[in-house]
Design a binder for these strands. Structure first.
Lengths: 344, 344
DNA sequence: TTGTACGCGTTATCAC
DNA sequence: GTGATAACGCGTACAA
C-alpha cells in the first residue's frame, strides 16, 4: 500500500534551497521572520517541486487539520445544494477544507461517525444526524460544534442556527383560510425526529385553532419530506376518497412536488380544486406548474451563518447560542393567487 | 486549544501490560497471533486506561488517509446533487471519507488545489477544474485519479467516465427537425473549456448538416450552462428581434429554465411558438411548465462509476481507461409532443 | 510468539 | 536569522 516514495517533503525543499527544514517550516507558517533572500529561494523551490505540506504529519505535530466536517443524514435532496453553497463559501474564505459525511446515529449499535476530532477541527451537524450521546461526548471534550436546524440537548451548550418555522407556517395557513377560504387542509409533515417538523405542525395547528377549525388527525399525514412518499400518500388519499380536502400544506417543497404530481394525475386542478403550498422555496419552486406558493427559508444563509459560527468557535471567540433566521411567505400561484409577475 | 487532555498512548498500554508496543499494536490490528495470556492483559489495560488509538498517528504511519477527494469548480448547481449522491454511496460503502473542494486552476500557475496526495488517497476531478499541469504532476506520481466529464490530456493515462453527448444531441435535434418541423434552432452552449460543450455542439451541427440546413453562427450563443445567463441572452434575442427562431436547444437543463422564463415573459408560447429542449434531465425537468423534453444523462451513475473506478485504482486493480455512459432522449411536452402520461 | 528500533513529515525547543 | 534535533503516536521490518 506504499503509494509513493517520491513524495516531496519539507526536507527536499530544504535541501534544494540549501537551508534547514526548520527555516522552511518557519517560512511556511510565518512563525518568524526570514531573510528576503531565503524567502524567495524557498518560494521558488516549493513551486518547482510542487511541494505541498503533508496534512496528516502536520496534524500529528500540531493537532490541527485545517478542515471542518459536515454531517448530514441525506445528501439526496435539493435542500442540500444551497446549504452546501453557503458553507462552502465560508470554508474556502477561511482557507479550510470541507469533509462531507452522510451518517445517521443508529438507535442501538454503537457505531462511530466517520468524522470527528481525529480528522476535523470542528463540525457542522445537520438536524438529527448525530445522537445525543455522540453530541454529548464531543461537546464535553470541548470540540467545536455547531448545530443546524436543531437545538442542543438539555445541559449542553452547543450553538445552533435554524429558521423561524412556526410563525411562517401560521401565516401561510392563515392565508389559505382567510384569502382562499380553504378549511380542509392536509398537512404533509416531515420525519418526527426533526425539529422543523414539530414547529411546522405547531404553526399549522395554531392557525386552525385561531380560526376555530377543529384539528382533524386524519388530515395530518407523514410525507417524510420526500417527493415519492408524498406522492404515494396523496394518491392513496384521492383513491380512497374518504377524506375531503381542498388544500395541502406540504412540510417542504420536495414533498409538494409529489403532491402536485398526484393531484395532476387525478385530474384535480391546482389551485382550482386544491390549493397547494410548501416550505423552503427551493430552487425549482418558481418553475413548478403552477408556481408554488411557499415559505422562503434562507438556506444558503443558514449554511453561511453556521460555518461562520464554527470558525468563531475554533478561534475561541464568543458566539450566539442560538441564531434564528427569518422566513417569509412567497406568494405565487398554487395557493390560488394570481401575482402580477409570472416568474420568480 | 488543548482538545485531548487524556492522551494515553500505546506506550502506556504496553508499560502497564508489561509488554512491548509492537505486541500491543499487533493485537489491536490482529496482524499476528498473540498468546492468550497477553491478549487478556492488553485487553484489560486498554479498558482500564480508556485507551483509544490515535487516528492521525496511525494514518501517518500507514501513509493512508482513508479519504478521497472531489474537485469541482462550482457547487451551486443541480447537477451536483445526483453526482454527489452517486459518489457518496460508494465512498461510504468503502468506509471512506469524502473531501469536497471547489477549485479552479487559474491560468497563472501559483496556486495549489486544496486537496491532493497530502490529504487524500485518490481524487475525482470534474470537468476542467484542474489544469493539465496539475493533472500531469499528480498522474506522473502515480496518484490515483479519475476524471469526470473530461478526457485525459494526451500522453496521460487517467481513466475517465463521461456520458455520450454527440449522438444524443444529434437525435434530439433530429426530433426537432423531423417531427416538429423546426429548422431555426438556437443552440445555447456551455463553457468552451468543457468537453461536453464541444460534443453537444458537434451533434447539433451534424444533425443540421444531415438535414441540409446551413449552420448559422448567429444561432449559436453562449448560455454558460447557467439559467441566469441563458435568460438574459434569450431576452435580448427576443427584444432585438433580428434573428428569427422557432426552437431552442439548451446545452443543459439549467439554462433551459432561463430560456423558458424569458420566452414566457415575452408571451411566446412553448411549444406553440417555440420548441425548447435541454440536456441532463435534471430533477426538475419533469415539473417545468411545460415538462421539458431533454436528454437523460445518468449523472448518479456517473458518480457511482467514477468512485468505483477510483477505489479499484487505490486497490491496484486494472480499470477501463474510458467509460462512456449511455444517454437517451426523454420526450415530454416542451418540444411539441403530447405524451400520454402527464408526469414522470 | 515477542521485542528493538526506526520511519512517517511536521512543528517546537533549544542553542548559536 | 538560522540550524540540529527532539517530540507527535503508531506500524513494522528485522531480530531473537
Amino acid at each position: 500500500m506504499t503509494r509513493k516514495s517520491s513524495s516531496v517533503t519539507i526536507r527536499d525543499v530544504a535541501k534544494h534551497a540549501a537551508i534547514s527544514v526548520a527555516t522552511v517550516s518557519r517560512f511556511i507558517n510565518q512563525k518568524a521572520p526570514v531573510s528576503q533572500d531565503v524567502a524567495e529561494r524557498i518560494q521558488q523551490v516549493m513551486l518547482d517541486l510542487h511541494y505541498v505540506p503533508h496534512a496528516t504529519a502536520r496534524l500529528l505535530a500540531t493537532r490541527q487539520t485545517k478542515t471542518i466536517g459536515l454531517i448530514v443524514h441525506n445528501i439526496h435532496t435539493d435542500f442540500f445544494v444551497p446549504l452546501l453553497t453557503g458553507i462552502e463559501s465560508v470554508v474556502s474564505k477561511n482557507q479550510y477544507n470541507l469533509l462531507v459525511a452522510t451518517y445517521k446515529s443508529p438507535v442501538r449499535r454503537n457505531s462511530q461517525p466517520p468524522i470527528g476530532a481525529h480528522n476535523t477541527d470542528g463540525m457542522l451537524i445537520f438536524a438529527d444526524s448525530l445522537s445525543e450521546e455522540h453530541l454529548t461526548h464531543l461537546s464535553l471534550n470541548d470540540f467545536p460544534l455547531v448545530l443546524i436546524h436543531r437545538t442542543p440537548p438539555a445541559n449542553l451548550k452547543i450553538p445552533c442556527v435554524t429558521v423561524e418555522n412556526k410563525t411562517a407556517t401560521h401565516k401561510i395557513i392563515d392565508h389559505l383560510i382567510e384569502v382562499h377560504n380553504r378549511r380542509a387542509i392536509i398537512f404533509l409533515n416531515g420525519p418526527h425526529e426533526q425539529e422543523d417538523t414539530c414547529w411546522r405542525q405547531q404553526g399549522y395547528c395554531d392557525s386552525l385553532e385561531a380560526h376555530g377549525i377543529p384539528i382533524d388527525q386524519n388530515l395530518i399525514m407523514d410525507g417524510e419530506f420526500s417527493g415519492e412518499i408524498a406522492y404515494e400518500k396523496i394518491k392513496k388519499l384521492i383513491a380512497e376518497n374518504k377524506i375531503p380536502f381542498n388544500a395541502i400544506f406540504s412540510g417542504n417543497d420536495d414533498a409538494a412536488i409529489g403532491a402536485l404530481t398526484a393531484l395532476q394525475e387525478a385530474d384535480l386542478r391546482v389551485p382550482g380544486d386544491v390549493s397547494v403550498v410548501g416550505f423552503d422555496d427551493s430552487r425549482l419552486s418558481p418553475f413548478l406548474n403552477p408556481p408554488l406558493t411557499t415559505v422562503r427559508a434562507p438556506t444558503t444563509e443558514v449554511g453561511r451563518c453556521a460555518a461562520n459560527l464554527l470558525f468563531n468557535l475554533i478561534n475561541n471567540q464568543l458566539v450566539e447560542p442560538i441564531t434564528l433566521l427569518p422566513t417569509e411567505i412567497t406568494i405565487r400561484r398554487s395557493c390560488g393567487c394570481m401575482p402580477a409577475a409570472a416568474a420568480n
